[in-house]
Design a protein around this nucleic acid. Sequence first.
DNA 1: CCAGACATGTAAATTGTTACATGATTGT
DNA 2: ACAATCATGTAACAATTTACATGTCTGG
Lengths: 179, 179
Amino acid sequence: MSLPHALLTSLLERPCSGLDLARRFDRSIGFFWPASHQQIYKELGKLEAAGWVTAAAEEGARGRKKVYEVLAAGQAELKRWVGEAEDPAPLRDALMVRLRAEAVLGPGAGVVNDLRHRLEKHRKQLALYQEIEQRDFASKVLTRAEQLQYLVLQSGLVTEQAQVEFCERALGLLGDRHL
Amino acid sequence: MSLPHALLTSLLERPCSGLDLARRFDRSIGFFWPASHQQIYKELGKLEAAGWVTAAAEEGARGRKKVYEVLAAGQAELKRWVGEAEDPAPLRDALMVRLRAEAVLGPGAGVVNDLRHRLEKHRKQLALYQEIEQRDFASKVLTRAEQLQYLVLQSGLVTEQAQVEFCERALGLLGDRHL
DNA sequence: CCAGACATGTAAATTGTTACATGATTGT
DNA sequence: ACAATCATGTAACAATTTACATGTCTGG
């Protein structure tokens, strides 16, 4: 379970409120560890109870906005966790199950629907990653931290590229002509 | 949720007991949709209640062994589900979170431990898939069903290959000399 | 004043993991 | 007899998703 450590990482990069965190997740760490605002609020409560972050009510801000900041104990915990080794999470891919089902059901079972749908999704995600690459990492000298962030983005790039190629190949095998 | 349909697929390939299913999952569909025997037993109960499979107590067998078989309604349901389109499941990769944490914590935070560990795991998984490829798909003419099964295996092959290359690259970037 | 965005949460349901429990059959 | 394996489950927990609830502030 990496959510607490993903939050600590993001808060170390910049202290902010729960909703800000949720928004930043949607276009950064959330590509590799998605989380809804509900989950984030709950987890922030636990981080605070554990003494890893402090919450400061921001005066003059809307509503009862709280700004969270990582404490020394939280940073120590994050460092401890980074040093741990973990088995890769098991894959769960419904498309593969559908392909196996199509194999046993025979031609025309309909897996092309999912293939076309996912091809489009993966193309969009790939385009998004390429946009981020151009915007944040193109034509400049990178610091070590930026090199690592770029590495993570590249993982996303090759993954989406591979997914696109897989869908195209599968559709070709199934005789689909809507490429 | 694809477990029921993964079970239907596997039972269509060959009717068998819950434990047999669990064992076959471990070296086939389970690479793309893992399931423990506890989960499988529970789900088989639901499939039976839904009228998608029948359970027949096998006489002369050990204990209270039951053999499950797919009914027409189950096959129809599987076909319906295969035709559905679904968004790809969101990625969740703790290694990426660790890399981002290492970026913000600075050199020596220890992500190399996880990278080395995962490099080894992915190399093993890749070797396993290559073995299956040689054993089941090398040097023979493939039926359509076999082509689809091979396609699924190839997805695993390129995925593991990409993971291996990513870990090697990351370790190179971090100056690790234990490749 | 009211719609819409900001901001923080609670509750229930689903899915999956881990630990435990029970009994039957086979091989030695 | 007894250990190992076969075979089927139950229970408790953990993580995530979905739906709902509540109140604040800003712009028109």
